[in-house]
Lab assay of single mutants.
Amino acid sequence: SEEEIREAFRVFDKDGNGYISAADLRHVMTNLGEKLTDEEVDEMIREADIDGDGQVNYEDFVQMMTA
């Protein structure tokens, strides 16, 4: 549901600035027990970053979650 997606976005957007940065993503993945290299984190950001601004905004996140 849209509310679940919004809630998930809030979990990833640690600093609440409306964007998921590589640092935000790394933090959440580490908490989930996933040890990722910087390259892996950057690749995840690139794949999710639809508009190419280097971070994942809510619209990018929705597209990723509903793809």
Rank of each mutant, 00 (worst) to 15 (best):
residue 1 S to H: 10
residue 1 S to L: 13
residue 1 S to F: 14
residue 1 S to N: 09
residue 1 S to E: 07
residue 2 E to W: 15
residue 2 E to Y: 13
residue 2 E to N: 06
residue 2 E to G: 08
residue 2 E to C: 13
residue 2 E to A: 14
residue 3 E to W: 11
residue 3 E to L: 08
residue 3 E to Q: 11
residue 3 E to N: 12
residue 3 E to R: 10
residue 4 E to Q: 12
residue 4 E to S: 11
residue 4 E to W: 14
residue 4 E to P: 03
residue 4 E to T: 10
residue 4 E to K: 14
residue 5 I to C: 04
residue 5 I to G: 01
residue 5 I to M: 11
residue 5 I to V: 07
residue 5 I to K: 02
residue 6 R to Q: 03
residue 6 R to T: 03
residue 6 R to M: 08
residue 6 R to G: 01
residue 6 R to S: 02
residue 6 R to L: 11
residue 6 R to H: 03
residue 6 R to Y: 09
residue 7 E to Y: 05
residue 7 E to C: 08
residue 7 E to G: 07
residue 7 E to V: 05
residue 7 E to W: 05
residue 7 E to F: 05
residue 7 E to D: 08
residue 7 E to L: 10
residue 7 E to N: 10
residue 8 A to D: 00
residue 8 A to H: 06
residue 8 A to P: 01
residue 9 F to E: 00
residue 9 F to D: 00
residue 9 F to S: 01
residue 9 F to R: 00
residue 9 F to I: 02
residue 9 F to H: 00
residue 9 F to M: 05
residue 9 F to Q: 00
residue 10 R to N: 04
residue 10 R to W: 03
residue 10 R to V: 04
residue 10 R to Y: 03
residue 11 V to A: 13
residue 11 V to P: 05
residue 11 V to I: 10
residue 11 V to Y: 09
residue 12 F to A: 04
residue 12 F to R: 03
residue 12 F to S: 01
residue 12 F to K: 03
residue 12 F to T: 01
residue 12 F to D: 00
residue 12 F to Q: 02
residue 12 F to I: 04
residue 13 D to N: 01
residue 13 D to S: 02
residue 13 D to I: 02
residue 13 D to W: 02
residue 13 D to A: 02
residue 13 D to T: 01
residue 14 K to F: 09
residue 14 K to N: 06
residue 14 K to M: 08
residue 14 K to E: 07
residue 14 K to Y: 14
residue 14 K to W: 10
residue 14 K to S: 08
residue 14 K to L: 10
residue 15 D to S: 07
residue 15 D to K: 09
residue 15 D to T: 09
residue 15 D to V: 08
residue 15 D to W: 07
residue 15 D to H: 08
residue 15 D to L: 12
residue 16 G to D: 06
residue 16 G to C: 08
residue 16 G to H: 08
residue 16 G to N: 09
residue 16 G to Q: 07
residue 16 G to L: 09
residue 16 G to E: 04
residue 17 N to C: 06
residue 17 N to T: 12
residue 17 N to F: 06
residue 17 N to L: 08
residue 17 N to E: 04
residue 17 N to G: 05
residue 18 G to R: 01
residue 18 G to P: 00
residue 18 G to K: 02
residue 18 G to M: 02
residue 18 G to E: 00
residue 19 Y to P: 00
residue 19 Y to A: 04
residue 19 Y to S: 05
residue 19 Y to F: 10
residue 19 Y to T: 08
residue 19 Y to Q: 06
residue 19 Y to K: 14
residue 19 Y to G: 01
residue 19 Y to W: 11
residue 20 I to V: 06
residue 20 I to S: 00
residue 20 I to K: 00
residue 21 S to D: 08
residue 21 S to V: 03
residue 21 S to F: 06
residue 21 S to T: 08
residue 22 A to H: 07
residue 22 A to C: 11
residue 22 A to W: 11
residue 22 A to P: 07
residue 22 A to Q: 10
residue 22 A to G: 07
residue 22 A to R: 08
residue 22 A to E: 10
residue 22 A to F: 14
residue 22 A to D: 04
residue 23 A to V: 11
residue 23 A to I: 07
residue 23 A to W: 07
residue 23 A to S: 14
residue 23 A to T: 11
residue 24 D to Y: 03
residue 24 D to A: 07
residue 24 D to H: 04
residue 24 D to C: 13
residue 24 D to S: 04
residue 24 D to K: 03
residue 24 D to W: 03
residue 25 L to M: 04
residue 25 L to R: 00
residue 25 L to T: 02
residue 25 L to E: 01
residue 25 L to P: 00
residue 25 L to I: 13
residue 25 L to Q: 00
residue 25 L to W: 06
residue 26 R to L: 11
residue 26 R to C: 06
residue 26 R to S: 05
residue 26 R to D: 03
residue 26 R to K: 12
residue 26 R to E: 05
residue 26 R to I: 11
residue 26 R to W: 11
residue 26 R to N: 05
residue 27 H to Y: 14
residue 27 H to E: 13
residue 27 H to Q: 13
residue 27 H to W: 14
residue 27 H to T: 10
residue 27 H to G: 07
residue 27 H to M: 10
residue 28 V to A: 10
residue 28 V to R: 00
residue 28 V to Q: 01
residue 28 V to K: 00
residue 28 V to H: 01
residue 28 V to C: 03
residue 28 V to E: 01
residue 28 V to T: 02
residue 29 M to N: 02
residue 29 M to H: 01
residue 29 M to R: 00
residue 29 M to F: 07
residue 29 M to V: 08
residue 29 M to I: 14
residue 30 T to P: 01
residue 30 T to K: 15
residue 30 T to H: 13
residue 30 T to Q: 13
residue 30 T to M: 15
residue 30 T to N: 14
residue 30 T to C: 12
residue 31 N to F: 13
residue 31 N to D: 05
residue 31 N to C: 14
residue 31 N to Y: 13
residue 31 N to W: 14
residue 31 N to K: 13
residue 32 L to I: 10
residue 32 L to T: 03
residue 32 L to Y: 13
residue 32 L to C: 05
residue 33 G to Y: 13
residue 33 G to V: 09
residue 33 G to W: 15
residue 33 G to H: 10
residue 33 G to P: 08
residue 34 E to D: 14
residue 34 E to C: 15
residue 34 E to M: 15
residue 34 E to K: 15
residue 34 E to V: 14
residue 34 E to H: 15
residue 34 E to N: 15
residue 34 E to Q: 15
residue 34 E to L: 14
residue 34 E to F: 15
residue 35 K to M: 13
residue 35 K to Y: 09
residue 35 K to T: 09
residue 35 K to I: 10
residue 35 K to W: 12
residue 35 K to A: 10
residue 35 K to L: 10
residue 35 K to F: 12
residue 36 L to I: 08
residue 36 L to T: 03
residue 36 L to A: 04
residue 36 L to M: 10
residue 36 L to E: 02
residue 37 T to Y: 04
residue 37 T to M: 04
residue 37 T to S: 10
residue 37 T to F: 04
residue 37 T to L: 04
residue 37 T to C: 05
residue 37 T to W: 07
residue 38 D to R: 12
residue 38 D to Y: 08
residue 38 D to N: 12
residue 38 D to Q: 13
residue 38 D to W: 11
residue 38 D to F: 10
residue 38 D to S: 12
residue 39 E to F: 11
residue 39 E to Q: 09
residue 39 E to T: 08
residue 39 E to Y: 11
residue 40 E to M: 12
residue 40 E to R: 10
residue 40 E to F: 07
residue 40 E to I: 12
residue 40 E to A: 10
residue 41 V to D: 01
residue 41 V to T: 03
residue 41 V to P: 01
residue 41 V to G: 01
residue 41 V to E: 02
residue 41 V to S: 02
residue 41 V to L: 13
residue 42 D to I: 09
residue 42 D to V: 07
residue 42 D to R: 05
residue 42 D to N: 11
residue 42 D to C: 08
residue 42 D to H: 06
residue 42 D to E: 11
residue 42 D to P: 01
residue 42 D to G: 05
residue 42 D to T: 10
residue 42 D to Q: 06
residue 43 E to C: 14
residue 43 E to Q: 15
residue 43 E to P: 01
residue 43 E to M: 15
residue 43 E to I: 15
residue 43 E to S: 14
residue 43 E to D: 10
residue 44 M to Q: 02
residue 44 M to Y: 07
residue 44 M to F: 09
residue 44 M to A: 04
residue 44 M to S: 02
residue 44 M to N: 01
residue 44 M to G: 01
residue 44 M to E: 01
residue 45 I to W: 06
residue 45 I to S: 03
residue 45 I to D: 00
residue 46 R to N: 09
residue 46 R to L: 07
residue 46 R to P: 01
residue 46 R to S: 07
residue 46 R to C: 06
residue 46 R to A: 08
residue 46 R to M: 06
residue 46 R to G: 07
residue 46 R to D: 04
residue 46 R to V: 04
residue 47 E to Y: 13
residue 47 E to I: 15
residue 47 E to M: 15
residue 48 A to S: 07
residue 48 A to I: 12
residue 48 A to M: 08
residue 48 A to H: 09
residue 48 A to T: 06
residue 48 A to R: 12
residue 49 D to S: 13
residue 49 D to L: 13
residue 49 D to R: 14
residue 49 D to F: 11
residue 49 D to G: 15
residue 49 D to E: 10
residue 49 D to N: 14
residue 49 D to H: 15
residue 50 I to S: 08
residue 50 I to T: 13
residue 50 I to C: 07
residue 50 I to A: 09
residue 50 I to H: 11
residue 50 I to V: 12
residue 50 I to Y: 11
residue 50 I to W: 08
residue 51 D to H: 13
residue 51 D to T: 13
residue 51 D to F: 11
residue 51 D to K: 12
residue 51 D to G: 12
residue 51 D to C: 11
residue 51 D to E: 08
residue 52 G to P: 13
residue 52 G to D: 12
residue 52 G to Y: 07
residue 52 G to H: 12
residue 52 G to S: 09
residue 52 G to W: 09
residue 52 G to A: 13
residue 53 D to V: 08
residue 53 D to P: 03
residue 53 D to I: 10
residue 53 D to K: 13
residue 53 D to H: 09
residue 53 D to E: 12
residue 54 G to T: 04
residue 54 G to P: 02
residue 54 G to Q: 05
residue 54 G to V: 04
residue 54 G to E: 05
residue 54 G to F: 04
residue 55 Q to Y: 14
residue 55 Q to I: 08
residue 55 Q to A: 05
residue 55 Q to H: 09
residue 55 Q to R: 13
residue 55 Q to K: 12
residue 56 V to T: 02
residue 56 V to I: 13
residue 56 V to F: 08
residue 56 V to H: 02
residue 56 V to P: 00
residue 57 N to E: 06
residue 57 N to Y: 14
residue 57 N to L: 13
residue 57 N to V: 06
residue 58 Y to Q: 02
residue 58 Y to I: 14
residue 58 Y to D: 00
residue 58 Y to N: 00
residue 58 Y to H: 01
residue 58 Y to A: 02
residue 58 Y to M: 05
residue 58 Y to R: 01
residue 58 Y to W: 12
residue 58 Y to V: 14
residue 59 E to V: 06
residue 59 E to Q: 06
residue 59 E to L: 08
residue 59 E to W: 07
residue 59 E to F: 06
residue 59 E to Y: 09
residue 60 D to V: 15
residue 60 D to Y: 15
residue 60 D to T: 15
residue 60 D to G: 11
residue 60 D to W: 15
residue 60 D to S: 15
residue 61 F to D: 00
residue 61 F to Q: 00
residue 61 F to K: 00
residue 61 F to S: 00
residue 61 F to C: 04
residue 61 F to P: 00
residue 61 F to M: 06
residue 61 F to R: 00
residue 62 V to H: 02
residue 62 V to P: 01
residue 62 V to E: 01
residue 62 V to I: 15
residue 63 Q to F: 08
residue 63 Q to M: 10
residue 63 Q to A: 11
residue 63 Q to E: 05
residue 63 Q to L: 11
residue 63 Q to H: 10
residue 64 M to P: 02
residue 64 M to V: 07
residue 64 M to T: 04
residue 64 M to N: 04
residue 65 M to W: 06
residue 65 M to L: 14
residue 65 M to A: 03
residue 65 M to G: 01
residue 66 T to G: 07
residue 66 T to P: 03
residue 66 T to H: 11
residue 66 T to M: 14
residue 67 A to T: 15
residue 67 A to N: 11
residue 67 A to L: 02
residue 67 A to I: 08
residue 67 A to S: 12
residue 67 A to P: 06
residue 67 A to R: 11
